[in-house]
Amino acid sequence: MTLEMQAPTPTAVKAGRVGSKVNWGLTLQRVLALIIILALWQVAVVVGLLPSITPGVIEVFGAIGAALTMPTFWAALGQTLTAATTGWLISCVVGVTLGLLIGTIRPLDRSTSVVVEFGRAFPTIALMPVVMLMLGATMTMEVTMVVLASVWPVLVQAILGSRRLDPAIVDTVQIFRIPRALWFRRVLLPSAMPFIATGIRISASISILAAVGVEVLTQVPGLGRLITLAQEAQRWDMAFAYLFFAGLFGWGIATLLAWGEKSLLAWNRQSDD
């Protein structure tokens, strides 16, 4: 899994500010794009372009409706979200703490840079057999896999963020003899936050992907497990419905975080102007 690290650029942020007003034209375009894709899908199914097992749009919508009334679906969704959220929160805490330490302690930075580069490029899913062997097909295993997959963006962004502390602020903190713990919490962390927030957002999407992926491949209960079971039962419409929900939650969380970021980091926008 490779990640494109991104720094929040002033232009991107300015575009975001304009976008905070509801843009009806854009919304219309997006809905239109969605309708066209669904129509193409339906046409492809009818014409026989796709394998015969592929369900049509109507069937999938029916399955989505059916899933909403199934207690097993809600239970599975709960399990997936719990594992993904737990792993993600651990990744955030571990990634931010380690990243800020690595970014500000020069020898630590130099000695760990290879490990960090390697880790973020490593196909985490390949580690699953090992983690399975150690922890079994359990929730703990799933959370571990989520952490292994999602910690990297937070870690890398926290390292990058900690390096951009303004020299004038470094001097200020020294002159007023700010204790290290207070400096870490009230200076370094907020200063790196615009970068960290990007990492946290990417990491949230990866967490859901990883949780569903682990469930698809193992016996761990959750949305991914339901997808496998639906496939085994040849219920392709249900499988697509579950996939839809997995996507929906990934997107929903990313959107929520982007919105939170925008309101909490107002100072970053303003001082860039």
Partner: peptide, 21 residues
């Protein structure tokens, strides 16, 4: 080293203030 009896107003005063506070 930095001393409790000495305070400084820096040349880059605007960058020495923390924008998140």
């Amino acid at each position: 080293g930095p001393h409790p009896d000495i305070a400084v107003v820096f040349q880059d005063y605007s960058r020495s203030l923390m924008p998140w506070m």
